[in-house]
Design a protein around this nucleic acid. Structure first.
Lengths: 129, 129
DNA sequence: CATACGATGCTGGTTTTTTAGCATAATAAT
DNA sequence: ATTATTATGCTAAAAAACCAGCATCGTATG
């Protein structure tokens, strides 16, 4: 059986996990710094401890301070996140989801990126066979 | 200024909003039915009331019962959700996100869907000019 | 009519979350 | 060496979330 990562996160805990996923790894001070609506430094540390107890974070001691990192790899966490959104907002339809993504940012996509996307789709097709 | 939808949702509140976004609209009983780890019927109703107070839901009276629906349209809510994920897990890169989506479900995509996706990308390209 | 059913309104209490404060250890600087 | 700085460990308590129960009202059914 896989290692337990008690999945139920409170709001603050979720916020903190998001910060750490963005940063890759972070100290308590860095987390505090990235929080939009920051509580006290102590509060952040308390939550980091809780998240570690729950199995979502681990820490390494780096000189005098703790650097926290997710136990669940980013790639895995984002798969879960995508699946969740797919289910809640897109009726499970990847096509709709991709459409929404393109719509969200079509202006910002370079021709090179669009080319690469085309190629990805072509490859997906080959694999399907 | 836009209407206030106090954004801070607790875990249960988030769960309930997800259920309602999936369903489009739902009664208290239906929400209860869809919850994985269901509390009492009363608890669900209490939360629905809170969500309405916070401005995330509105209700219509349908005969004797209330039918709840999101105040923020699904299309808008899912944009926010995508943006959030994009920022947290993909460093804002649409390309990476699409890649992950395809990877997640390439097996399940029909050729027709892949064709439509190709066309979407081609269209995005034209618009860009 | 009356009574069973299924809905809502409301209220109080328990549990969880969130928070700050204080004591202590290590590091760096004067 | 002393002192300032910046960590962590721990604890208690305020705040928020969560939940269940009871009263009430309307509708339908016998």
């Amino acid at each position: 059986m896989a290692k337990e990562t008690n999945a139920k996160l409170s709001r603050r805990e979720r916020e903190i996990m998001d910060v750490i996923y963005r940063a890759g790894r972070a100290t308590a001070a860095e987390v505090l710094d990235q929080l939009a609506d920051p509580p006290s430094y102590s509060a952040v540390r308390a939550l980091l401890r809780v998240l570690e107890e729950k199995g979502h974070l681990r820490h390494e001691e780096e000189g005098p301070r703790y650097v926290f990192a997710p136990t669940v790899p980013r790639a895995r966490a984002r798969q879960s996140a995508l699946r969740q959104i797919l289910h809640t907002f897109f009726d499970g339809s990847t096509e709709q989801a991709v459409a929404a993504l393109l719509d969200l940012s079509s202006a910002k996509l370079s021709d090179e990126e669009l080319d690469r996307l085309s190629r990805m789709i072509a490859d997906a097709r080959k694999e399907g066979r």
